[in-house]
Design a protein around this nucleic acid. Structure first.
Length: 149
DNA sequence: GCCAACGTTGGC
DNA sequence: GCCAACGTTGGC
């Protein structure tokens, strides 16, 4: 089983929205590196749900991958904000997975706290200038972050 | 293939 | 709202 972190802007889709929806197709990822991580996901992988572009950025909850990767339907819909005219139906460019709500953390574990952990090793979340919206989390990183809860 | 211009992300 | 960092686009 692999572990991941997926970012979302809580003003658009928060951990509370995921709890309400129970399972959500994680649509709209339009970055090749993030897409490649999505394509390597498997049913049962665990995910940290991270709130970005908000007052207190940080890990807000946990989820689980409940589907194999499959084509993001929005790429073919001209009315979809993530429409991509260059994507070929025979070889879709963009992929998503379904994410199921697992739990909301008792409190948000903030980016500041995560940065202050000195023993995380190489971590895409805290790399300088990082903008990846989907990134891998090692077992050690996962445990060190959740130990802060 | 280079690289300047442009758009987006996301912390602050 | 600002802006640094980065990805993408497109002219050459």
């Amino acid at each position: 089983m692999q572990r991941w972190l997926m970012k979302t802007e809580p003003d658009t889709f928060s951990i509370d929205d995921l709890r309400t929806r129970k399972v959500e197709p994680w649509n709209g990822v339009r970055n090749y590196q993030a897409r490649n991580f999505i394509r390597s996901m498997r049913r049962g992988d665990e995910v940290m749900i991270y709130h970005s572009s908000c007052a207190v950025p940080g890990v807000a909850g946990l989820g689980k991958i409940t589907s194999a990767p499959y084509p993001d339907p929005g790429q073919f819909d001209p009315k979809d904000p993530y429409f991509d005219a260059g994507s070929d139906r025979g070889n879709p460019r963009w992929t998503l997975v379904d994410v199921r709500f697992v739990r909301k953390l008792k409190r948000v574990i903030t980016l500041d706290e995560i940065k202050a952990l000195r023993n995380l090793g190489d971590f895409a979340l805290t790399r300088r200038g990082n903008r990846l919206s989907v990134l891998p989390v090692s077992d050690a990183q996962w445990q060190a972050i959740l130990a802060l809860e």
